[in-house]
């Protein structure tokens, strides 16, 4: 279908929200805020997917990210020396290169997006969730199953890496704080 003005407005609003919150992830000092700004970015993209008639995918994206971002916040609070950002800090390296790379990739991709001609074959109006279900458990079942097997392998691998009695030491060793200076690291 041809998008109406409401769809344009919603996409633009959520798009600006997604970009700004994505930017704030790296601008805030509080680790909790960083993690949840990223979640806001995902929720905005999920809302855009809902506007684009991919209701199921958008909601699944939001559903997945709410759990993942809380885990992320917990890990960031665990591993950062100043998680609440009570003192301002910058923990960046190769800053100039990164900015150039980021802006460069944006310009190139946006240029491609604006200049290139894409075929205009919009999705039909009926509920795409049914089509997705039939695809997942029909033609592309092997892909779906492979994703499941990969996730199982990852679960086993992650437990092997991080388990309490794992190869990389006892869990209680991790309860010490990291040392503050960068140079003296790598002491093995």
């Amino acid at each position: 279908m041809t998008p109406g003005p409401l769809a344009y407005f919603l996409v633009a609003a959520f798009g600006i929200g997604a970009v700004v919150s994505g930017w704030l992830v790296f601008r805030t000092d509080s680790m909790l805020r960083a993690a949840y700004w990223l979640m806001v970015s995902f929720v905005a993209v999920g809302a855009m997917l809902v506007v684009l008639d991919a209701q199921f995918l958008g909601l699944i994206l939001i559903l997945m990210m709410s759990g993942e971002m809380t885990i992320m916040a917990i890990f960031m609070i665990m591993f950062m020396m100043n998680p609440a950002g009570l003192n301002p800090m910058t923990m960046v390296h190769q800053h100039r290169t990164s900015i150039i790379a980021g802006v460069g990739s944006f310009l190139v991709l946006a240029w491609v997006g604006v200049v290139a001609e894409f075929p205009n074959r919009p999705a039909p109006l009926e509920d795409p969730t049914i089509a997705l279900g039939e695809e997942l458990l029909g033609r592309s079942m092997l892909v779906f199953e492979s994703a499941g097997v990969a996730l199982l392998a990852v679960m086993i691998g992650a437990i092997a890496l991080a388990a309490k009695q794992g190869r990389f030491g006892d869990a209680f060793e991790g309860s010490e704080e990291p040392d503050m200076d960068v140079a003296s690291g790598d002491r093995t």
């Binding site: 997604a18 980021g102 990739s105 944006f106 991709l109 946006a110 997006g113």
Partner: peptide, 10 residues
């Protein structure tokens, strides 16, 4: 696509 490019750049 421009929005996606901006998110990707960040």
């Amino acid at each position: 696509l421009v929005i996606a490019a901006a998110i990707f750049g960040i």
